[in-house]
C-alpha cells in the first residue's frame, strides 16, 4: 500500500520532470519568498541583513502586515462606532459577534475568574490568525499561518503568556509546585516533574504544528489537484480536478475559521489550567 503510493508519487514526479516542470512548483506557492506575486508580475521585496540575521521583508511578512493594517483599520472603525452609540451597526456589529464569541465561548468557560486580563491577547491572536488564514484564500495571497516559523512564534508567545499568567497567579514556586498533581508518591516526583515540564513544551509545539499543518495541507491538496491537469496532459480530468479543488477550497474556509478558533481555544484552555491549577 505504501509502496503503491510511493511509486505513484514518483511516477507523477517523473512525468512532471519530463514535462519540463519542477517538483517544487507546489512549494513555490506555499513557501515564503523574497518576491510578491501580483497580477502585473513579480514585485521584488527589499532584503535586509542585520547582525548576521536575514531580516528581509518576505512574502509572509508582507501578508502579516496586510492583516495588521486590515485589523487596525477595521477595529478603529468599530471602536469609533461605539463612541457614537452603544448599539452596534454594520462592521461593528459583525466584529462584536466575534468578540463576544471569543469572550463568552472561549475565555469565560476555560479561564473562569480573572479572564479579563487575558482577553486582549486571546482576541488579538484569534483575529490575527483568522485574518492571515483568509488572506491565503484570496488570489495572489499567501498564508502566513502556513509557515512553521510564524506558527511556532505564535505558539511561543502563547507559551510565555501561559507561564507568565500561571506565575503571576500562583507565585513562581507555587506555580511549579502546582504542576505536579496531588497525592503522587514521593519516589515518583522526579519523573513527574520531568513529565510535567515536557508537557509544558508539548502544548505550544502541538499548537504550532496543528495550525501549520492544517493551513498547509489544504493548499497543497488544491495545487496537487490542479496540477493533475498539467501532469496528465488530458482535458478529461479538468472537471474532476476543478470540482475537487473547489470542494477543498470551501473546506479551507471552514478550516481557516476552525483553526483560528482551535488555537485561541487551546491557548485559553492552557492559560486556564496554568492559572487555576487545582482543577
Amino acid at each position: 500500500m505504501i509502496f503503491d503510493t510511493v511509486t505513484a508519487v514518483s511516477d507523477t514526479a517523473k512525468v512532471a520532470e519530463n514535462g519540463g516542470s519542477d517538483t517544487s512548483w507546489i512549494m513555490h506557492h506555499i513557501l515564503d519568498a523574497y518576491k510578491l506575486e501580483t497580477p502585473f508580475g513579480y514585485l521584488h521585496l527589499p532584503s535586509i541583513h542585520l547582525f548576521g540575521i536575514d531580516l528581509s521583508i518576505t512574502k509572509h511578512v508582507v501578508f502579516m502586515w496586510i492583516a495588521v493594517v486590515l485589523l487596525i483599520s477595521g477595529f478603529s472603525i468599530a471602536s469609533k462606532a461605539y463612541k457614537k452609540s452603544l448599539v452596534p451597526k454594520g462592521i461593528a456589529n459583525f466584529l462584536e459577534v466575534l468578540i463576544i464569541f471569543v469572550r463568552d465561548e472561549i475565555a469565560k468557560p476555560t479561564i473562569g475568574k480573572g479572564y479579563e486580563r487575558f482577553l486582549p491577547y486571546l482576541l488579538t491572536v484569534f483575529f490575527f490568525i483568522l485574518t492571515c488564514n483568509f488572506l491565503g484564500l484570496i488570489p495572489y495571497g499567501a498564508t502566513a499561518t502556513s509557515n512553521i516559523g510564524v506558527t511556532s512564534t505564535l505558539a511561543i508567545i502563547s507559551f510565555f503568556v501561559i507561564q507568565i499568567g500561571g506565575v503571576m497567579k500562583n507565585g513562581f514556586f507555587g506555580y511549579f509546585k502546582g504542576l505536579i498533581p496531588h497525592g503522587v508518591p514521593v519516589w515518583l516526583l522526579p519523573i513527574m516533574f520531568v513529565v510535567e515540564m515536557l508537557g509544558l513544551f508539548t502544548k505550544p509545539f502541538a499548537l504550532a504544528i496543528r495550525l501549520f499543518a492544517n493551513l498547509t495541507a489544504g493548499h497543497i491538496v488544491i495545487y496537487a489537484l490542479l496540477g493533475l491537469i498539467f501532469i496528465l496532459h488530458t482535458y478529461i480530468v479538468i472537471p474532476v480536478s476543478i470540482s475537487f479543488a473547489l470542494f477543498i477550497y470551501l473546506l479551507e474556509i471552514l478550516v481557516a475559521l476552525i483553526q483560528a478558533y482551535i488555537f485561541t481555544m487551546l491557548s485559553s484552555l492552557f492559560i486556564g489550567m496554568a492559572v487555576h491549577q487545582d482543577h
Binding site: 540575521i53 536575514d54 531580516l55 468578540i99 486582549p120 516559523g149 510564524v150
Partner: peptide
C-alpha cells in the same frame, strides 16, 4: 525550515498589533 528573520518579524508584528489593538479596540469595545 524556520527563518530566524521571520520569527523576529512575527514577534514584532504581533506585539505591535497586540499593543495597538489593546489601546485602540479591545479596551473601548469591551
Amino acid at each position: 525550515d524556520v527563518n530566524p528573520g521571520l520569527i523576529v518579524w512575527t514577534i514584532v508584528t504581533f506585539i505591535f498589533l497586540l499593543l495597538v489593538l489593546k489601546k485602540l479596540a479591545w479596551k473601548p469595545i469591551l
